[in-house]
Amino acid sequence: MRPDTTFEKIAWPLGFGLLVLVLWEVVVRVFGVSPAILPPPTAIGAAMAGSLPILWEDWVQTVVKGALNGLWMGTLAALILALIIDRFDFLKRGLMPVANFFAALPIVGLAPIMVMWFGFDWHSKAAVVAIMVFFPMLVNILGGLAAVDPMHRDLMRTYGATHIQTLHKLRGPAALPFLFNGLKIATSLALIGAIVAEYFGSPIRGMGFRITTEMGRLATDMVWAEIVVSAVTGTALYGLVAGIEKRVTFWHPSQRG
């Protein structure tokens, strides 16, 4: 089979997506489904068009302030700890079980406590996200640092390279594919974390806040509007990470294609 052209790559999923939307609209209208149960796509579209300023405000609050801040903080913390653990072997034995314990913390129980510690605004959401992304990032970075070809490592030894030089010239680049795997997991976790954390207290904006309050008023078209925004955001973030990955780890067999 010949490979798809760029046009076909976009056209196929777009066509299928449209088909699903049309079927959805038809089913809702033909069977007279109550809008509180499932609003038709046109109603969701109208809700989105009519409340763009609100959606934008919510998006900035949840995605930019909550999710992205938490994402970089958690990732940076994981990176620093990974480098320290990697340097001192006794820490691997001492700290990894603690990190494992962190990974087992239930986010739903954690969120109210973070709200108490860091207040109602985005800081508590970023804290929840940071904790959520921390562990997958740590495990992936450590895995990447350990995944060095023994021959490549011996080569650095024959040059009399220092620990920092080996890290910079060999183990860092070799760990990048792992880092990006972690980031792809972490971006979707970050979005979920930031939205769910808002269920436990937030100022009167944010995607999670909007979902709970609009649901209370049975304004499901607005709930769906937020869901659409978050799905599009999640897809775009993932695409962004995958795009950077393709540029940075072009040399990896999985990217050479």
């Binding site: 021959m151 011996d154 080569l155 024959t158 040059y159 009399g160 680049p173 040399w251 990896h252």
Partner: peptide
């Protein structure tokens, strides 16, 4: 001698860094 970089070593495989 290794630390004073007195030899070049060639391994069984080329072992070039792909990046």
């Amino acid at each position: 001698a290794r630390k004073s970089r007195s030899y070049g070593y060639v391994f069984q495989a080329a072992g070039l860094y792909p990046w």
